[in-house]
Nucleic acid binder design. Structure first.
Lengths: 143, 143
DNA sequence: CGGAATCCGCACAGATACTG
DNA sequence: CAGTATCTGTGCGGATTCCG
């Protein structure tokens, strides 16, 4: 490698290693996307977007999440700087989680995704029904 | 159940079953979110957002996806009405995939997510480094 | 070319038990 | 309350093969 030519590890070589490309498997931005385009991450972040919340409150709010996945995902989000962990040394200890400024930027996109899902659910359901009918007819025609 | 009280299956009972709640495990909107807040779905949809594309072109563009996951995810997206499948009866057959109007609405949110990831990657990396240093120091202090 | 079908491993998620 | 530790299983996803 030439002097003064810094190639960030994992960045696509075609661009000289300086352009992030989420479509390249080993690009850091792709790995970041894999962590945030995840159902638990999305639900945790948007929940914290409404209000700072304690561990068990989060667990109650996000139906179906296990304590393991909640703990694990929170740690990952904290490491990425999207969530801040606040510990109050009471007995027993009180821990709360809040969104960071960095995280709240991301939330806008995530919330738009959720809003779309709730707004267009009916269209999606109709599409599924139509698809299943076509499938069924095709299967019978062959069957 | 009372006459005239329609409860859509899976919708939370507290709201009379009429309000979608993505935080309820068995709500249809939650299941829809689980399908779209998925790494392959996000990459496929945003790729098709740029241009209509054939199967193998998609496979080449999205680094690391297997034929099985591409086929499977495309079918799921088609069933949800987000992607349209066009078959041209040449020999061998030519199949291309395009985003639907419904899907292109969603893409805006997904693309915002990707743009955020590429824009804030540096901040995330710094946060990770700081986190790892704290972890390390803590581990050494305990021994 | 664009898949479907099959086999298979292992990583991830759930359940359980325990701790400060 | 807020986790960690350990075990266990299973289903997701990769690899391979075959087909129209």
């Amino acid at each position: 490698m030439q002097e003064g030519t810094f190639i960030a590890p994992g960045y696509p070589e075609e661009t000289g290693g300086r352009q992030p490309d989420v479509y390249a498997a080993n690009c850091p931005t792709r790995q970041l996307l894999d962590r945030i385009a995840d159902k638990w991450s999305v639900l945790i972040l948007t929940t914290l977007g409404m209000d700072e919340m304690r561990f068990n409150a989060l667990k109650r709010r996000i139906d179906g999440i296990s304590q393991k996945m909640l703990s694990q995902t929170l740690r990952s989000l904290e490491r990425d700087g999207l969530v801040a962990r606040h510990v109050v040394p009471t007995v027993p200890v009180t821990v709360s989680y809040a969104i960071t400024p960095l995280g709240s930027e991301l939330i806008e996109a995530l919330q738009a995704m959720i809003d779309w899902a709730e707004r267009r659910m009916a269209d999606v359901t109709l599409s599924q029904l139509a698809y299943d009918v076509r499938e069924r007819e095709l299967a019978e025609a062959i069957g």
